[in-house]
Each structure stands twice: as structure tokens, then as C-alpha cells.
Design a protein around this nucleic acid. Structure first.
Lengths: 334, 334
DNA sequence: CTTCGGTGACGTATCGTTAATTCAACGTAG
DNA sequence: CTACGTTGAATTAACGATACGTCACCGAAG
């Protein structure tokens, strides 16, 4: 494989000139004719710069890592998109990792920890990382940004509390009185429950306890079964996790509960899948793309030594997407 | 950040000894006491090896890239899992990329093309990459393995033809006569259609033309609508893409077609979601995990200069997972 | 005729690691 | 007592790219 040295020899110039041509450095100037001669030599030899050598010399790699707690979750699609695009803007590539495989001593963690791999790290699902993993990560000299509220770290987050509130208020406005919140575990779920609680309170309704059954389809099904065992069955449900909503729909079907006629359902987060389910699921769309974009920006602030523009993303707001899974309880006609 | 030099100074030994301790090299021997002294110094200084420097020196990085045509697709979950685990076995990390963002000149492509980034490349969805991107990739000196049948490249693939055959034969055995294949585009879809055709032929039935409507939920819905417009409506459908199956279910619901009573549906590929849909979808499970694992093994064969053990993965075979979306046409009782 | 500034380019130290080579010290066999 | 093998470790030359310092050359100003 051709190196700068080969190019230099072929073009009859020194290493320095080739480097200058490659990087457009102004330090070393050259005649236009020299430049084209070097360019032609590069082409002929099929020269490709060596990333490892550059990284070593420059002490940065143009790569950032993003750790997600469940790579499969479709809600991360737009997040990834935002991160990729913003990273590209900074000339960076993204190394994707799953929190599930991030055990202490794992390949991925070892790679991150070693110097000269990435310029910074983005994490969503911090609560799902082992404490010792977080401790090892914290010892990393490159900046870490948490895409989630974090007490002792730079962070940036979407407004989950507000989403819970919006979803619940929508159901309240539909005249529902017995509304249950099916949640997961962790801070994010907790925030959404808080929003639910707040909306219930301000409507003068009694919030039901947080049904924390976990994540995914099965969790939703379990949650619904639990909810229906209450003394007075709910007429509406806020589902914390979008994949759980699929489980809720399935369990309702199995229990012979018609949606939305007997039970209204609203999910937090919106993904393509929701409009293709039957009934199509009413959901609160979260600005995940923006989270990704803003996360990268904030991370690069940190990398540049600037304070970092974190906090809650409030623009755009979580947005209600009305479909068919929620309906008014007592239509005006009755 | 501490370097080997710092550790050497702190431990009172030379660089070479530190390197030997880190790598367990037998070349440079040392007293056990020296070893522990070095180890202690490493701990105290929080030494982490520099990846860029190692890569430069060793001329390999311990990273491989995997390019997928649609990162979001849940069928890739097990593939990724297999790749990650096999890669870890080789001490390697995986750089994930999406074919959709792999335009010529994109960050990701540029990064891959430069030397010293990855030791090899895995691609699934080759047909979806632009020709010029493939050409640029081909000029890469590191090995490339296509996770899909490829005429002019090392490749490894699952048996898509067989999957189409198994799905179709299942419906034939259920006494269906009018079976339609809703497909996508590209080689993989084509193979599955071939299997469908073969099963129809050997049952003495006339295969319907390939309804190539693309990928995803909308494609499935479109496919069903087209299928139902035929002179004699089908009683069963083989859906090429698992996400399309969701669309088929939705469209059937909207058209008032009961599944499985009036229409049997079977999908190719199986994901968790399928068992949580209502009706739960009968599907053909493909050995995606094995594809990932075998792909990495074959890639490392290539990297080591060995011929590479490609070809079709026939063990395990595609496996029928019977759920509720397909039923016999004329039960014995009628 | 010298001095000066600008242009165009070169030489080389450096980044952190690894591996080949060299070397000192020590024991032991002849 | 010398020669030699073994052990334990140090020196050093790459790996490829970058940026600092240097320098030759040339035209113009003093």
C-alpha cells in the first residue's frame, strides 16, 4: 500500500509537501503546478492516508462512540440518524455499542478505554450499565456525555416528564377517570410517571401506582394483566415503552378487551410500526433526532473544552400523534 | 495520560519490558518480581495502551466493519449478535454502518477506505450499495466478505430459496391452491420467490407472478391490495419481508379480510414481534445468528490469507415456526 | 552592492508501540 | 582460569503522518 513517502518520491517532492497537499495546510506553501503533480501521483498510486498514523500524531481519531441500552429498539432509529448526521458534520464516524454486551472486560469496553480509539463517548441507558463499567468509563480521559438526565455528568435529555403529562392530559380530556400508567424501570420511566401523576393531580384524579413491569412486548402484556386485576378496571392506559404497547395490544386481544371501545391506549415514543398496528396506536412523538444531533454538538463542545450546552430539550416539544387506539369515554350522545 | 514510557520510568525498567508485560511476549523475559513491579506501576498511573500507536506498529486494528442495508430491521438483531460474539472471540470490535448513509464521499466510507481503520469488511445488502461505492470499496486492500450470494467476491449466505420453499410447501400441505408471493427487490427476494415457484411447481400448482413491492410495512400493505385484485383471490400469502407482514396484517384488517380464516399468511424471517402480533404470525426462522458468526470466521480466514470457507449455510436449516396466522383451507370436516 | 522580505520547499523530531538486536552479568563445564 | 550458554533486561529502528524550524532563491528597496 502506498504511503506518503511513495507519493513524495513519485512526485519528486518531499514528505512535507505531500502532507500539506493532503491537509491543505497553509504552513507549507507550494506552486499550483506542484500541487497538481502531487495530486496526480496520489491518484496513480491509489494513495489512502493511514488513519492510525494520523490518529497517533494528531491525538484525535475522528470517531465517537455511542452506547445504547438496546440497539434493536426502533425508537433509536431517529436518534442514530441525528447522531450520524451531526457527527458527519464534524468529520467524525460513530462506533455503536450495546449496553447489554458492555460487561467489564468486554471487547468493546476495552477498546473504548484504550487511548486513541475515540474522541468522546455518548451514552443512553446509563442506569443499565454496571457500576463498575461506569467507573471504568469515568476514568477515560476523553469526554463522556449522557443522553439522559445525570446528576454528576454532563448530560442532555428529552422532556420525559412532559411526555407523560401530555399523554395523560389527552386521556383526561377524553373524560377518562381511571387511568393507569404501565412503566418500566429506571429514571426515564420514573420521569414519565411523574408527568402522569402531575396531570392526574391537576385534574383532581387519583394516580394509580407505577406498574413497573420492565421493557418490551412481554412487559406490556404483563402490565395490562396486572392493571385489569384492580378493583375498578381502568378505562385508559398510558404505556411507557413503545414496544410494550405492542404487548398491551396483544394481551387486550387475548383477554377480549376491545381497543379503543373498552380501553384507550396511548404510548410514549412514536415509531413507524405504531401506524401499522391495528388499531393504529396513538402516541407521543419525542424529538429523538434532535436529541442525537444536540448530543453530538454538546459532546464536541466538551471535546473542545467548552462548557457544553446540555440540559433538557424543550424545542420541539413532545408531540401528540392521534390515531385510533384512544377514544372519548362518554361521547356527548350518552 | 500515562504512556509506556511513564510506566517504564516509574517501574525503573525499559520500555521493552513494559511492552512485554502488556503483551505477554515471551521474547523479552523477566523476573516475576520485575513483572509485578511493572504491573503495579501501570495500575498506579492508570496506564491504558494507545490504540492508534499499536495499530500503526502492528498494521492491524482489531476492528472490523459491518455494513447493513437497514440497521433498524429487527431481523438483524441476531446477525449482529453473532457477529459481535464471534468478533470478540477474535479480540475484535465491530464498526457498524448503514448502507443508506454510505454515499460516495460519506464520512463512513472515507473512514473505511483509509488505511489502518479496520482489518476487514462485512457487507449485507450489497445490491443496495451504489456501484461507485462498491468500486471504491473493492480498491480497499483489506478483505471484504459479502453476507449474501455474490458472483465475484467471497461470500456466505443463508438458504433463502429453501426458506421460500418451506413456507410455500407448508401452505400447500394446508391444502391451499391459490398462493401468492409478496416480495421485495433484489437477489434475496428473488431467491425466495424461486423457492416458492419450486414448491408450487412440484405441487402441480401455477405460481403467481412475483409481487415486488419493496420493503417494510407499507410494501406489505401494497402487496396485499394488489394480490386481492386478482381474478381469483388468493387464500394464502407468503410474505418475503417480516416487516411487510405487519403491513399485510394491517391491510387485511382494513379490507375486512379475516386472518387466518379467509387468508393464511406466512412470513420469512422470524423476530420477537411476530409472536406479539394478533394473530401471531407463522414464520420461517432463518439462521441469522449463525450467518453472523460464520461470516466473521470466514472474514478472518481471508484476513489470515486462507481461502475462506464461504457458501450457503445449510445447518441449521430454515425452521418453520407455526403460530396463528395460517390455517388449513378445507378442514377434513367439510 | 548589500539587505530584506516573501515564496516554495525540504529535513527531521515526534506521537506510543513493538520486535529485533545487543549487552551485561552470572554460573558452569572443560 | 577461560570459554560459553543462559538469563534478564536495555537500546534502538521502524510504523506513517504532521508541523516546526530551516533554507535557498529571487526580486526589490536602500
Amino acid at each position: 500500500m502506498a504511503t506518503q513517502r511513495d507519493v513524495a518520491r513519485a512526485a519528486g517532492v518531499s514528505l512535507a509537501v505531500v502532507s500539506a497537499v493532503v491537509n491543505g495546510t497553509s504552513h507549507t506553501r507550494m506552486r499550483e503546478s506542484t500541487r497538481t503533480r502531487v495530486l496526480r501521483a496520489m491518484q496513480q498510486l491509489g494513495y489512502q492516508p493511514n488513519h492510525a498514523a494520523r490518529s497517533l500524531r494528531l491525538n484525535h481519531t475522528g470517531m465517537i462512540a455511542m452506547i445504547l441500552n438496546k440497539l434493536d429498539n426502533p425508537v433509536y432509529g431517529p436518534l442514530r440518524q441525528g447522531v450520524y448526521e451531526a457527527a458527519a458534520e464534524h468529520g467524525a464516524t460513530v462506533l455503536l455499542g450495546d449496553a447489554e454486551t458492555m460487561r467489564s472486560g468486554s471487547q468493546f469496553l476495552t477498546r473504548l478505554l484504550s487511548q486513541g480509539t475515540v474522541d468522546g463517548i455518548l451514552i443512553r441507558g446509563e442506569g443499565l450499565l454496571d457500576d463498575d463499567v461506569m467507573a471504568e468509563l469515568r476514568s477515560h480521559p476523553k469526554p463522556i456525555l449522557i443522553l439522559e438526565h445525570a446528576p454528576d455528568h454532563p448530560w442532555i435529555d428529552i422532556d420525559d416528564r412532559r411526555a407523560g403529562e401530555i399523554a395523560t392530559r389527552f386521556l383526561v380530556n377524553l373524560r377518562h377517570r381511571h387511568i393507569v400508567f404501565i412503566g418500566g424501570s429506571g429514571y426515564i420511566s420514573q420521569q414519565r410517571y411523574l408527568g402522569y401523576q402531575q396531570a392526574m393531580d391537576s385534574a383532581g384524579l387519583a394516580p394509580a401506582p407505577h406498574l413497573a413491569t420492565g421493557f418490551g412486548e412481554q412487559a406490556g402484556a404483563d402490565g395490562l394483566r396486572q392493571a385489569m386485576q384492580a378493583a375498578t378496571a381502568p378505562t385508559a392506559i398510558v404505556v411507557n415503552n413503545i414496544m410494550s404497547a405492542v404487548g398491551v395490544l396483544a394481551a387486550a386481544h387475548d383477554l377480549g378487551i376491545a381497543i379503543p371501545d373498552r380501553l384507550s391506549v396511548i404510548g410514549i415514543h412514536d415509531v413507524d410500526l405504531m401506524q401499522h398496528l391495528r388499531p393504529a396506536v396513538t402516541a407521543v412523538r419525542m424529538p429523538m433526532y434532535q436529541l442525537g444531533w444536540a448530543g453530538v454538538e454538546a459532546l464536541y463542545d466538551l471535546i473542545a473544552g467548552r462548557p457544553g450546552t446540555g440540559g433538557l430539550i424543550t424545542d420541539p416539544e413532545p408531540e401528540l400523534v392521534i390515531r385510533d387506539s384512544a377514544t372519548a369515554l362518554n361521547p356527548p350522545g350518552t
